[in-house]
Design a protein around this nucleic acid. Structure first.
Lengths: 212, 212
DNA sequence: GTCTATACATCGATAGAC
DNA sequence: GTCTATCGATGTATAGAC
């Protein structure tokens, strides 16, 4: 086997890998479409195969099982979360940055309620994300915590409260005003109330013996 | 037909009605059990019939369709919400009452995540509660609004923000710490931050031209 | 109102040829 | 890696006797 042959073989292998990845991505995209139409649990592997012009059993060359498909969707959704919510630059002001974070999070959820469901609720009984997929989710969480820290939010309880605020706004928006912005517009007010309370408490604590 | 006969007939009819209602309640209870085990969408009418010792088609004497079953569950869940959250008396202090309301709401959700799902999310594609069932849900909402009003929360935006808070705490509790109380214990702090901001803003508005 | 029997569709997954 | 064929189970709902 010559050097040239090896190179050619590598290139061929790369091409095949790319083709395979592209098809896998196409299957995932079709799965999201079906989920939006029929619900996450309503995805049928037959419909899915039809959508990508494959025979239904051929899907098993790309995903070992339906749970495997959900796992890939979970990972992809979290990657989109990072891209769409953290991708654009944030205001330098920590308060404004938190507002923007909250606003983008609510918009992200309301842009695709089914994706919101898969990422933040437990819509598929028995399904647990793999460690690899879950790592993507944690990456987003860490970034959010960093932005809170910059705004003076350090207590775990306050971080939890902020995540509840984000979850609540997103949830109400999706469940009770789909397509609207009734809860999305509350992001600024929510952050202001939150920060006022948290930083006031922090200041009080820090002010022990230092009444200015 | 004598007077006595009529009376006897009425009593018999009542007894039959009671029996029927009792069986319907038993079916509903079994449906909740199955939902907790297999998810709301995972309820199978075969399993359900087995659980109450009926042949599967006999269920159609009690519910016209599966959607009808969901609707009955939705109504019952909302009745439980009213009973369990509003049934016990509240503290007279408006702030303490709101804290208690939030705490009970989170506990209610975490006591039965599937019920929480049915009441506050959209877990069954295509299912919309009937007007009668939805009326029960609105009754609870009105009571909550009344308690907020008592605490000085009058703006619709602030009411919405509070519902987001309740939804967020419940959701995080159910999704990320099932069985625990990591978010439930945040109820007091959440209400304090919320009320501090809302009443401060209201006071500022009211103070226009009235600086005391 | 309950049953048996069954219609009729759909599901996820596997076997095995090519 | 894709296909055809098919398994075995399950799903909701209906027909019709009793």
């Amino acid at each position: 086997m010559t050097q040239l042959d090896q190179t050619t073989e590598m290139q061929t292998s790369d091409r095949r890998t790319r083709r395979r990845d592209a098809r896998k991505a196409a299957i995932l995209a079709a799965a999201w479409e079906l989920a939006r139409r029929d619900g996450l649990l309503g995805i049928s592997l037959r419909d899915l195969a039809d959508k990508v012009d494959l025979a239904q059993p051929s899907l098993y060359s790309y995903f070992a099982s339906k749970a495997d498909l959900y796992d890939a969707m979970f990972a992809e959704g979290n990657r989109q979360l990072i891209d769409e919510v953290l991708g654009e630059p944030f205001p330098h002001d920590a308060r404004e940055a938190l507002i923007e974070l909250l606003r983008r999070a609510v918009l992200f959820s309301s842009a695709d309620p089914v994706r919101h469901e898969l990422l933040f609720q437990r819509p598929v009984p028995g399904f647990e994300p793999s460690a690899a997929s879950y790592a993507v989710a944690k990456e987003f969480y860490r970034s959010g915590v960093a932005m809170m820290t910059a705004a003076g939010v350090t207590e775990q309880a306050d971080v939890d409260l902020f995540t509840a605020l984000a979850a609540g706004l997103s949830n109400q928006q999706v469940a009770n005003d789909p397509g609207g912005d009734r809860w999305a517009v509350l992001a600024e007010r929510a952050v202001d109330l939150f920060l006022a309370g948290v930083t006031r408490a922090a200041a009080t604590t820090a002010d022990k013996g230092d009444p200015s």
